[in-house]
Design a protein around this nucleic acid. Structure first.
Lengths: 192, 192
DNA sequence: CCGTGATTAGATAGATCGCTCTACTGAGCG
DNA sequence: CGCTCAGTAGAGCGATCTATCTAATCACGG
């Protein structure tokens, strides 16, 4: 029962930020949905909304990175895992009415030119994803330099496909981006 | 001197929305930067902020589509034009302190789950870009079905690379996404 | 010169924003 | 029991938000 309130607040802020963005989500809305009083927020996050935002970004980012890692684990063939991950992302989009895509992209675009602390948090998350991806790709036999290129291209394809799919209400972009990423991986493996 | 104020408002809202997002940009800030009084906005946009947002999206989207068209005109070899466009996007990012990327992506992510009218405006813009791209790719000799896949993959790569590049303060993602798009086009042309 | 509609100008309303403040509750411990 | 303090609870502050309102100003035809 101790850290329960903080957890609930972070759960709600994570979902609301990814759907409506940072500026578009009010503290009161987060607290109302979390069933938490106003005072609790400033007890757990003395830094206010910015601190809540930064912690939400890091937490959601780590969670999503772990999800990606489960799909693309060492026991799965790399391109197969990537295809499965993109297919799963497309399914999640459909199931949630095109609401749940990348947990930090919306905030990342919003704050990249206006809040240096939050931008840094997003950058840390992206760098962690890239680093984990490079390690996995290298394990499959791709040289680290080429692996880094492929991972960044894959993540860019994923993030951009989310933008298109959410706006167009169509999973086609996510599916096509997944196919492009998987095909590029297979080509790199053939060369290696 | 007639439509001057309206133009100035749209110019400022276009720049501010792309940098800070829709919810993160106040009407007062737009008007202050445009040097326009409060009343003028509701004269030119009776629908208020939503109408301004929708018109800004369509206008900025059309403008950016035209820019893309200039780089990838019929007189330029397709993959070369695509490479030039991505290189130009990377240069713009650097010059503007990683502020000016896609004019509508930030808003698109923000409103896709909260404002149906603005989401529709974003969808219209993306569809127009795709349609124009398909026409150009088909002209280069790529079948329409394959062309559509390639265009969506290219746009997804562009949009996602903007997310990464802005957060990471590094143009590498944009450059890599451009190379991936150009390489895919060259491969498709070899097969055609 | 006046009259008219378009546009500019800005005060102000009403709601909501992030945040601070004080008061209360309850678990752990001597 | 009584003390302590982390955490809960919410009233309320000043600022800011979008939007409405009336008045001033402009160009221009008669």
């Amino acid at each position: 029962m101790a850290g329960d309130t903080k957890e609930r607040i972070l759960d709600r802020s994570g979902e609301l930020f990814r759907r409506q963005g940072y500026a578009g989500t009010g503290i009161k809305q987060i607290l109302a949905e979390a069933g938490a009083p106003f005072g609790s927020l400033y007890h757990h996050f003395p830094g206010g909304k910015t601190e809540l935002g930064a912690e939400t970004i890091r937490r959601s980012g780590a969670l999503y990175g772990r999800l990606l890692g489960e799909f693309v684990g060492p026991e799965v063939e790399l391109a197969t895992g990537v295809r499965a991950f993109f297919a799963g992302a497309a399914e999640t989009l459909r199931e949630t009415g095109y609401a749940d895509a990348c947990p930090i992209a919306t905030v990342a675009l919003e704050v990249s030119s206006s809040d240096e602390e939050l931008r840094g948090a997003c950058a840390d998350v992206f760098e962690a994803w890239i680093e984990a991806g490079v390690a996995r790709f290298a394990m499959a036999g791709i040289g680290r330099d080429r692996a880094r290129e492929l991972v960044i291209q894959m993540l860019a394809g994923l993030e951009g496909a989310f933008v298109l799919s959410r706006a167009l209400r169509d999973t086609e972009p996510v599916e096509l981006a997944g196919e492009a990423a998987a095909a590029a991986i297979e080509a790199a493996l053939r060369e290696a």
